[in-house]
């Protein structure tokens, strides 16, 4: 028994060694190695990130034969730290594109990678120390809230009663809510209630049912994520409530963009916080090496309203999100 496990261990060691030399040989033909570290697909938005990262990997490798892209997903902050260690131990990294799980925990490990001279691109969630990054690409969560609020103030004529569903207690959620509230506060619109529904369809459904039971009149609903919006719509339809004029979300989920395109009366707009920002970051980083385009600084993707006119630009039918 013991001998057999030893044999198996030897065999697997040989396989691993073979794989490693194979990878090394492959890496030698390529001039630049670009590693991408992102969260695993645990919900809609990160599912979109993984999809867009994989698509961008194929496109970049096809466009620039001298660049090798490695995409690595991690299911937690700790796992992401480990995967960073593994990536930098087994490869000469020229660039690292990272969407950090959390700011605090990843700052040290990324700094470690940067100290080897690797070009660092940070996406979405900033590190605690911004001086580590060479390039920063992110969406604008405050604008997601603010642009939706401006549209709503306009449509409701500056007055009315609305309810809000928020996500998981995080900076992202806080910023969206802040951007929204700041604009709404300047109008006569009253926010009847704000509660957490954890960016979850089921929880949004039950919360919306409760809102509908609690308030006899609701003019509009804002769920700060499209996943939740789908639950909200189901609850309103079931209750048969005619008073709800608008149901808005945010993020640019495929199903909701389809509704916008179809000219839905209650959901005529959305705002993007697109998972495809990972692809934007990868392209910019690749341009730094393969093209003659220096890419340093901070790039903030705006959150313009998605309307039936421009919806096509935000619609990726093959993406899971």
């Amino acid at each position: 028994m013991k001998l057999r496990t030893k044999g198996a261990a030897l065999l697997s060691a040989a396989v691993v060694a073979g794989a490693l030399t194979g990878a090394a040989a492959q890496a030698q033909d390529k001039e630049f190695t670009l590693a991408v570290s992102i969260p695993a697909a645990t919900h809609g938005w990160t599912g979109g990130v993984v999809y867009h990262a994989q698509e961008a990997e194929k496109q970049i490798e096809a466009a620039y034969p001298n660049i090798d892209v490695i995409v690595s997903t991690a299911s937690s902050a700790t796992a992401q730290v480990s995967s960073l260690e593994d990536l930098s131990a087994t490869n000469e990294l020229d660039a690292l594109v990272i969407l950090p799980f959390t700011s605090e925990e990843l700052t040290g490990p990324v700094e470690q990678v940067a100290s080897n001279g690797t070009f660092i691109t940070v996406v979405d969630r900033g590190l605690s120390d911004p001086s580590i990054q060479d390039l920063y690409v992110a969406g604008d969560n405050i604008a997601v809230g603010a642009n939706t609020a401006k549209w709503l103030v306009d449509k409701l004529g500056g007055e009315g009663e609305i309810v809000v569903l928020r996500g998981i207690p995080t900076v992202i959620d806080d910023e969206r809510i802040k951007g929204f509230q700041d604009v709404i506060d300047q109008s006569d619109i009253k926010i009847l209630d704000i509660q957490y529904a954890n960016w979850n369809q089921d929880e949004a459904f039950t919360l919306m049912q409760d809102y509908l039971g609690k308030y006899p009149n609701i003019d509009a609903v804002w769920a700060n994520d499209d996943d939740m919006l789908l639950g909200v719509i189901e609850a309103v339809d079931q209750a048969g409530r005619e008073d709800v004029q608008y149901m808005l979300g945010g993020n640019g989920m495929k199903q909701v963009i389809e509704m916008v395109k179809a000219g839905d009366e209650r959901t005529p707009i959305s705002t993007p916080y697109p998972p495809s920002m990972i692809a934007s970051a990868m392209y910019m980083t690749a341009a730094q090496f393969a093209g003659q385009a220096p890419m340093r600084g901070s790039f903030k993707l705006d959150a313009p309203l998605i309307t039936p006119e421009n919806a096509d630009q935000f619609y990726f039918p093959d993406s899971p999100f």
Binding site: A40, A41, T42, H43, G44, T46, G47, G48, V50, Y51, D227, K254, Q255, S319, P320, F321
Partner: peptide
């Protein structure tokens, strides 16, 4: 289920 939905949703 994550694999079956690609992290998105299965309607």
């Amino acid at each position: 289920i994550t694999y079956m939905t690609d992290g998105g949703s299965l309607s």
